[in-house]
Design a protein around this nucleic acid. Structure first.
Lengths: 334, 334
DNA sequence: ATGAAAGCGCTAACAT
DNA sequence: ATGTTAGCGCTTTCAT
């Protein structure tokens, strides 16, 4: 754990000025070949590398893209995978920063992280699932799957309403006519869009609207359990349920079990997200998947074009992918 | 994309000196309550945040842990998951840096990244799968799964020999007596350890050593295909093969198919690593898994104790987990 | 209680 | 070809 080798150490040992070392390191003109050789030799001997931090204070460009996440959970990690793959071969390095691990300050973490890194350390940022608007950023920013309003300029997310529509049409296609919906969190854009997709599918199928079939699940297990119970307690219970996320769908699966309902024979259930647990449940949960890899890839391409000085593009919606598994089947003939 | 708000902006608007602002931000004593209030107000108005970069040049501590990876691939991402979870609730933020994405300089990326970030930006580092020794680091370092020698002081990795032994004993337990081995890359420590575990298991079972049953597969598909062919061409071919990694095992699976051998009836195959493709193959590959989540968690705990000034600990070996799937079964009765 | 000044490691404009 | 200097944003003595 030796102390850091700085440009000063190199200059001293090579018996030149620091600016000469800097010129050599950055390949600037106006240094004698002999000097270049000697400096390089000292650099190797000492194992010197320029400090990213110090040089980023002088240079505007660092060739580093920052990925700002609240936390490294599976959703963010899968995005990171696509981002990393897309960045390979470009001149950019990748720095992922989780600035929300400390107990304090959880809301608005993205604004904080962006201010702390932007303008100096990173040339541009991709923010994963931001919770608040970013009014003015020091660097170009692309948001992935923003939770709140749509005021962020550049956005990549899944086609929530289209995905919900696919899920509902899947049930419709199996022959279901009475389809319930467990709604997501009121304050999140995605919840509204998913509900809209559900309504759209029913409308397209010419099925009259029944407000009783929509219950609030808040994207959370407990609330979804209650919602599912109310749905199944209906005088005319639904033969299928589209839940706004997999957590809720899994909750509904539990309620079906507690009622002695066979899934999918007595009740079909489909979720949204395709979280890992979805594939593990018994029976395996039918759902709709966000193409995370491609979303990350898309975000990178958008950011790179922004960094090349191109104009802001319209929001990018990537299609959701239907993943039919074992919780959806035709309704029991009656 | 407004320009960055600096401490100077705050000072100017609040009509105080920058040092006063700094004191307020860092909660130092000796500032009038009225001044504190005014400065805070301006900070909020302007949306100021201290620059990580600038402050890290003055402070020795940043409360940021750096994870240095060559690339964000599944192995590193899974580790990141464990690392992030373990760091939650501590005072540390997490910064993951992939410094190998640029085409040039791929070997020794870890030394480069460490020099560039260490000493200023990060308080300590966890390096994933380093390829070279780190002679002197500016900050405490823990290595996960180093590829080369064992000269790195603090290491976390899977128990390679133990895992190989488990795999071999699994085959032994099924009744196999003649077990081949496709060896990994000569220059990697893990390959030697896995071979050693294989030999140990056979020795423990009192099975005489047959050098013909070990072939070089280099951890690579093509070489492993050749190795598997040679094994199966033997006058007395093995009834089971332990491959040093899943790539090689999958290659062997292909060779079995090309020979018309049924797996696992005619030939049992087991790999090592549990890469995603392992679960996808037909039949699904039996293998041995590295507990990546726990390895990440362990590395964090080691690093934190190092940062608390504790002494270097001995290398940590985490047990590998046997994952029996469908490519291993008792040998055909003969 | 406040501010002026030095310095962290580095780069670039400007001498020499 | 080389060195001197200023300054990036910040924290920390050290005056005042």
């Amino acid at each position: 754990m030796a102390t850091r080798v700085t440009i000063n150490d190199v200059a001293r040992v090579a018996e030149v000025s620091v600016s000469t070392v800097s010129k050599v390191v950055n390949g600037r003109y106006g240094v004698a070949p002999a000097t270049i050789a000697r400096v390089h030799q000292v650099i190797n001997e000492l194992g010197y590398e320029t400090s990213l931090v110090a040089s980023s204070m002088r240079n505007s460009r660092t060739n580093i893209i920052g990925i700002l996440v609240a936390e490294f959970e599976p959703f963010a990690l899968e995005l990171l995978n696509g981002i990393s793959a897309t960045l390979r071969g470009t001149k950019y390095d990748l720095m992922a920063y989780a600035g929300n691990l400390t107990p304090e300050g959880h809301i608005g973490w993205e604004r904080r992280s962006l201010s702390r890194l932007g303008g100096t350390l990173i040339d541009g940022a991709i923010i994963v699932t931001p919770t608040v608007e970013i009014p003015h950023s020091p660097v170009p920013v692309v948001a992935i799957d923003p939770q709140a309003g749509t005021d962020m300029p550049i956005i990549v997310d899944v086609d929530n309403s289209g995905g919900a529509q696919k899920a509902t049409e899947h049930l419709l296609g199996l022959g279901h006519q009475r389809i319930g919906h467990i709604r997501g969190r009121e304050d999140l854009k995605s919840a509204h869009l998913r509900e809209a997709g559900y309504r759209q599918a029913l409308e397209n199928a010419g099925i009259p609207h029944d407000e009783q079939l929509i219950e609030q699940g808040d994207y959370q297990h407990d609330a979804a359990v209650e919602a599912a119970r109310r749905l199944l307690d209906l005088p005319q219970p639904p033969s299928a349920i589209f839940a706004a996320n997999d957590i809720s769908a899994l909750a509904a699966l539990g309620v079906a079990a507690e009622r002695g309902l066979a899934v999918p024979e007595d009740l079909s259930i489909i979720g949204f997200d395709d979280i890992p647990a979805a594939a593990q449940s018994t029976p395996a949960l039918s759902t709709v998947r966000q193409p995370l890899h491609e979303m990350g890839s898309h975000a990178v391409r958008l950011l790179l074009s922004l960094l090349d000085g191109e104009e802001a593009t319209a929001p990018q919606q990537l299609p959701a992918v239907l993943v039919p598994r074992d919780t959806t089947a035709p309704p029991r003939a009656n």
